[in-house]
Amino acid sequence: MSVADVIAIVLISAGCFFFLAGTVGLLRLPDLFSRLHALTKADNLGLGLVAAGMAIYMANPWAALKLFFIWIFTLLASSTACYLISRFAREQAGVTANSGKEDER
């Protein structure tokens, strides 16, 4: 196993940890806004780390570029989706921070 493989494994494991943290946040945090926060922040970082690990593992600049763009566009899309969901929740569905009882049902 080469040094590159070890770095790739470390990066991908770290990425998986952040995905796990984001999922735990989604399940455990009390209201919509903090859940969105957990999802977008942790998962974007996790995806970035997984993509970086994959890029090193594949050792191919073309593939690395594709992975980089996948990450960038996912960042763009997920932050926009996060913004739209929270705007809708606040303005039209009347969700406020701390009104996080909806998962009790």
Binding site: F73, L76, A77, T80, Y83, L84
Partner: peptide
Amino acid sequence: PVLEPVSRILAPV
């Protein structure tokens, strides 16, 4: 303010 510029970037992509 967010969706409009994002659509400008993502649509050509």
